[in-house]
Design a protein around this nucleic acid. Structure first.
Lengths: 337, 337
DNA sequence: GGGTCTATTGACACCGGTTTCATTGATTTG
DNA sequence: CAAATCAATGAAACCGGTGTCAATAGACCC
């Protein structure tokens, strides 16, 4: 329509090569008149860049990931990338499939919150084929890639010290993993690195202080967590404090306590290693560690984009600080009580 | 490597055309040995199918959308599609840009929670070029496409009847829109259809019952909502009940009431037209309308996939029921009080 | 045994971009 | 004024798939 060759039209629209001003505007006018829009897929096939990054997480309904993904999309958008999303529900096969599909779709890079610390062949594939990869939250043992996360060991240690400092001597750590409490106790390797770090921190701090502690795993669903806490409360040697591994566990725990006719923190204390909105309106408000989810996501995408564009060689860990927020859910137990 | 032509290799791997069993396995073996993976982009260029759907919402951090997106990804995954995501923050330009980019990336279909009821040229483009489109939550006035949502008018009416039934005669409706209260009052068209329906329901029910009511718009951020409610509480003619348009407004409202030293529902009642987790652990628990967010998302993606695959002609509205959940945040006011 | 049918295969054009290369004409240089 | 330089352009090949078509050959039919 503009009376030029395909090459010239492509140059005019693609903004590369050199085109005279006159033809430039003729082509632009023709494109406008025709309602022409470039085919980003075709462009990607030849250019090798899809301007899309793949994000693989366990569940977007989890507010932590929702915030993180928001951070990722914001950083991605600022750099001209889109985000394609997959939920794995902590299922390794689903994770592998998602990574594979995204690779097939030629994403420019991947952000993965891997469900496994050790089964990382699919991630090794990614780095082997030279696709930028950023590990999110969880850090697999043998994958050489950038990692963005928080220091779970330090955070859990701080919480333990806080509890111990307030006189607690019988603490339960509630988490969602398929490992048995005995396995946790014995230092059996855990599939998810963040949980592993927290368990290790609890064990180390409790032993150092010589206090009673117990791991309860298997709180896979909110319903199950509710049951577990309810039965915990009926025990004669009821613990003085419960540490919830994350907010989806703390909520049913809180409800179970209330339904049992007990009160936080009078009858039992509650801390969470993950913050949530509701913890600021509950009675009492819940003491928690607030993870910088949005910032983590932002950082992860920024690091990824950096790798995509500069492909520098220095992979490293990017640690962001969490903030411990004291509210009103932990009792101070008088010495000798 | 398998000693066959490109065509045959493609047929063997692509699973189309006919290939002898012998060559089929030779090609498979060669592909395996070479670690060959198809290029989904190239496939999409020639096939015209990208197996990707674009989702355009205002904010993934909003739990309503997080749940909805989870539903969408689940339905999409089941049908072999991936989801690519964009946040607009209720910014029309961002929405337009996102739709355009997704179109350029040749998504097979779009789900859009549009920020505007009337400025829908970009959506009309989508239907004009024959891309399947599903409208989510909000329904623009003149776009002929499937719509998945709830009946906001009916839900808000039910809440008003509940409040009126409990003796409330001075109600404030708190929403986040740039329109002034006077514009809301006069029936001025609102950009977002769900808010428009709610405002209309409140006005109609209040007038019918002859009670006092007031619109407060402009609660754009949680901070602003907090301020607004705080000043509301200092008024001599303090309203007896506040209806929060959605949970991100109810939370700061709840906090502001508490910080003012007042108590829900003794000093003021609170209802929300959108449910949230925290409303079950706050004291008191908050009466709210629970939107079936996950199901809405699931439905939206199912409808979209149906259109992509069968392209039937009968576009329609898909209404899902919300559930009113009475908890403890609304006082019963004795007649004549 | 000749003719038709059908499965299998390769050659080749196509999708819609990008990129290399040679050609052209104008401008700058010596 | 000839030679060198350079911007602008089109032809053609490429990216990595898919689809059409004709050639081949073995199976089947009478």
């Amino acid at each position: 329509m503009a009376g030029v060759s395909r090459s010239t039209a492509a140059r005019a629209l693609g903004g590369y090569g050199s085109v005279s001003h006159e033809l430039q505007s003729m082509v632009a006018a023709a494109a406008e008149a025709l309602g022409y829009r470039g085919n980003a897929l075709a462009r990607s096939v030849s250019s090798g860049r899809s301007h899309t990054i793949g994000v693989v997480i366990s569940d977007i309904e989890n507010p932590h990931f929702a915030k993180a993904v928001r951070g990722m999309t914001d950083a991605a958008k600022a750099a001209g990338f889109d985000v394609i999303l997959a939920n794995t529900d902590e299922n390794l096969d689903a994770e592998r499939a998602a990574v594979q599909v995204f690779l097939d779709k030629r994403v420019d890079g991947l952000i993965v919150a891997s469900t496994s610390r050790s089964d990382s062949a699919h991630l090794l594939d990614v780095v082997r084929m030279g696709r930028p990869l950023v590990l999110f939250d969880r850090r697999p043992d043998n994958v050489e890639a950038d990692w963005v996360g928080t220091d779970c060991y330090a955070d859990a240690t701080a919480v333990m010290e806080y509890l111990i400092g307030r006189g607690h001597t019988n603490i339960v750590f509630l988490s969602a993993t398929t490992k048995t409490p005995e396995e946790l106790e014995s230092g059996h390797p855990l599939p998810i690195s963040t949980i592993a770090d927290r368990v290790r921190a609890v064990r180390t701090a409790a032993r150092a202080a010589g206090i009673r502690y117990e791991f309860i795993s298997d709180a896979m669903s909110p319903e199950r967590a509710h049951e577990i806490v309810a039965s915990l409360l009926r025990r004669p040697d009821r613990p003085s404090a419960v540490i919830a591994s994350y907010s989806r566990l703390a909520l049913p725990a809180f409800q179970a306590i209330r339904e049992a006719g007990m009160e936080v923190p009078r009858d039992i204390s509650l801390v969470c290693l993950d913050d949530a909105e509701w913890m600021t309106v509950s009675s009492p408000e819940v003491t928690a560690v607030a993870l910088p989810a949005y910032e983590l996501g932002l950082k992860a995408a920024e690091v990824l984009v950096g790798r995509i564009e500069h492909s520098g060689p220095d992979q490293r860990d990017h640690l962001l600080p969490a903030t411990f927020t004291e509210r009103g859910s932990v009792a101070k137990i008088p010495a000798g009580a």
